[in-house]
Amino acid sequence: MAMAALRREGRRFATPLIRPNPTNALRSSLSPSEEQATLGVRYISTQIVRNRMKSVKNIQKITKAMKMVAASKLRAIQTKAENSRGLWQPFTALLGDTPSVDIKKNVVVTISSDKGLCGGINSTSVKISRGLHKLNSGPEKLSKYVVLGEKAKAQLVRDSKKDIEISITELQKNPLNYTQVSVLADDILKNVEYDALRVVFNKFQSVVSFVPTVATLLSPEVVEREAESGGKLGELDSYEIEGGETKSEVLQNLTEFQFSCVMFNAVMENACSEQGARMSAMDSSSRNAGDMLDRLTLTYNRTRQASITTELIEIISGASALTG
């Protein structure tokens, strides 16, 4: 009984001597709530660090799961995107891709994702679109945006909302398919007047590299004009047209179909890039969470060890004071 009372006494005396330094050194790096620690509490509370560790661990679990989901989605969509490349290639061979064509009414079709957490792919496509917009706007020229996806919309609203003509969202509710994209392309064609459509998207190259790409599509009138004036589309005249249709009719059908095919490919490629970018973003964030967890664990263990050491010293010195 007397021993216990003495020990308590000893502690009370020891507290002010030992406490200030280790407490400050260890706690200051952990949380600003140092002042909130209850007075008279003997040990450095590791509660905050423990909570932090728990939350970091949970975040890491989430990012890992997101990475897995993105990886499996990517695998499904990658083959589809790669197969869809066969759709636009013949059109480019026939009608060409002429990004430098000089026309009055430009429409920039920016393709982005609805969801975030996928690295910088949306910003790159917005950046490219802005560049194209600037490049093609002048005193007599008209340049408009058609925006696909929530993210590009949010970025473009900030500085060029006057130029947005149509915005389209919720594209990826069902798995992407041609019918859907062609209905969408149809809507764009019907509601926008254009001489050239410039489709901006991220072309999928590998899981870690996406190339911002522009596909330029001309309206039938412009195609005809370009073909007559020679130039890049001059070869078009050497094709023979069967049946009773005139050339302009055929061209109109062709350009419409070309647009829907290019849109389909662009949407696929962009969705594929999105999943790839999300995968690598989530990979690095779970790695960062791991690093953080390691650091926190180290601090936690060190604090614990320090308090144990202090306690031992107290006991030993108390005992030696009694005996000595």
Partner: peptide, 16 residues
């Protein structure tokens, strides 16, 4: 396989 779903908003004078 060929399901269509998306939402279109037209913009007039900078307002959707």
């Amino acid at each position: 396989r060929e399901k269509v779903h998306f939402s279109v908003a037209k913009w007039v004078d900078g307002k959707p």
